[in-house]
């Protein structure tokens, strides 16, 4: 494996972390969806590069699934939902971007500190990919915690799932059956969530999830 190969793998996986930060930062709906599509493209590129390096053709199918489902279908569908919900012009009030970003960087640092010693026996690729994947997963969680809009929480969830696929592709790949079923289950989760979105909107007249807390009597 030449240094250039590992550099490209590093570049693709690292750009996923960077795009996760962009997701965390972006407060406009359409821009958020575009960034999410790029996130999926980076995932597809990363997995495809792993497939090429590991000579594992079934990983190409994983990359294709990522590209089609998460890069095209889900962003386009979410775009339609956003338009139908009528929130495409609203700018989301993200809770204090600065501290969130710093917290995100701390999470990336944490995942690197945790992953690199734990996986010492593994090859450099696996270690690197696992460290990046854990960062992407944690950043997805952070996004789900900090956002109040249901659609952005869905995007946080999907980006988290991208991180899981990245982790799996580094570790010699999941069996194809698992891969495909995960891909479809995400799609189904997406459908269920989108139905819920409309139900929430019907009931509460908003997709701001604080309204739900209010109805449970938890908000002040």
């Amino acid at each position: 494996m030449s240094p250039l190969d590992s550099d490209i793998a590093h570049l693709l996986a690292g750009s996923m972390v960077l795009l996760s930060f962009l997701l965390l930062y972006q407060d406009r709906m359409f821009a958020l969806l575009n960034v999410f599509a790029f996130h999926a493209f980076a995932l597809a590129g990363s997995v495809a590069w792993q497939a090429y390096l590991q000579r594992a053709p079934h990983l190409f199918i994983t990359a294709l699934i990522a590209l089609l489902f998460k890069g095209v279908i889900i962003p386009v569908a979410l775009r339609r939902i956003v338009v139908r919900l009528g929130i495409h012009r609203s700018i989301e009030t993200v809770v204090s971007i600065g501290p969130t970003m710093l917290f995100g960087i701390a999470l990336v640092g944490l995942s690197i500190v945790v992953m690199l010693p734990v996986t010492q026996a593994e090859g450099p690729f696996v270690r690197e990919d696992l460290a990046f994947a854990l960062s992407v997963v944690l950043l997805g969680f952070l996004m789900m915690v900090t956002r109040r809009n249901a659609v952005s929480q869905v995007i946080g969830f999907m980006s988290l799932e991208n991180g899981l696929v990245l982790a799996a592709s580094g570790a010699r790949g999941m069996p194809l059956v698992v891969e495909i079923s995960v891909g479809f289950s995400v799609l189904i989760a997406f459908m269920v969530i989108s139905i819920f979105l409309f139900r929430i909107r019907e009931r509460f007249d908003t997709v701001d999830l604080q309204a739900l807390d209010m109805s449970r009597g938890e908000a002040l």
Partner: peptide
């Protein structure tokens, strides 16, 4: 600032893989 910080952190990972 964030990009600089992230660049430094990611550098530690790439040092491992070399």
């Amino acid at each position: 600032l964030m990009l600089g910080l992230l660049g430094t952190i990611l550098l530690f990972v790439s040092k491992v893989s070399r």
